[in-house]
Amino acid sequence: MSVFDGLKFRRVYSPIHNLDPRIKFIYVCAIFVIAIMFGELLPLVVLFLIQIPFVLLAGVKREWIRSMRGAAFLATIIFLTNFVFAYLGARGIGQSLENAVAMTLRFIVLIESFSIFFLTTSPDHLGLALEQTHVPYEFTFAFTTAVRFVPVLAEEAQTIMDAQKARGLELERGNFLKRIRNYIPILIPLIVSAIRRSLELAEAMESRAWGATKKRTNLYVLKMHKGDFILAAMTIGILAVAIYIRLYLPIPSINQLLTGIN
């Protein structure tokens, strides 16, 4: 659940929240691509650090830390597998360690940038962005509705769990199979009420003339502002520098740097 916490949008105002989601998305994709481009530790550390000003500027430090903590478990697994396999592949401890840390950091950078994106972009904004890039409105609507209902469903799941516990259900009891079966009394009410709710939503929408005209108008229209151009320029800059480094510069490993100093 805590990984999802890191994706939950909270309505606050900050320079980052006001950015055009399209540009933000391109920025996230650029970071994504760069993270894939580099397997070395040093550039990944830089990539990790670049994002921290965004977090601070957006004022979502607490949520961001929570999502990082949520990713910790997977990160540990990635670290251990990489380390073990590199070490078995007869590389030295130092190098295996550096390699494993780099791979883990790559994963963290990916989570980090997506978490920043979802933490600072309201579902409505995102829908608007999709719509203005000519994605059919049916898809846009389905997408934004799904995103919006995730927290509602999570809350409902909690209530259902409480209701069944109050009837003596013990989720942690029994062998593996029994434990899975224990979730039936939770899943069925959850699914039934989700379906019931979606039918109600459909009726409510139709009674408010959903799909009456093909061309919808929007109250808000996304426009690029100064901040968006700055972010766009930054994205291009970072991407260009990254490509240049990748193609023309050797990247020293931390191990080499350390031995160089000695």
Partner: peptide, 17 residues
């Protein structure tokens, strides 16, 4: 505790399955 304290939730749809 539930053996002693019965709790009927507000929305029956949260428990019927």
């Amino acid at each position: 505790l539930a053996r002693k304290v019965g709790f009927v939730f507000q929305n029956p749809d949260h428990q019927l399955f």
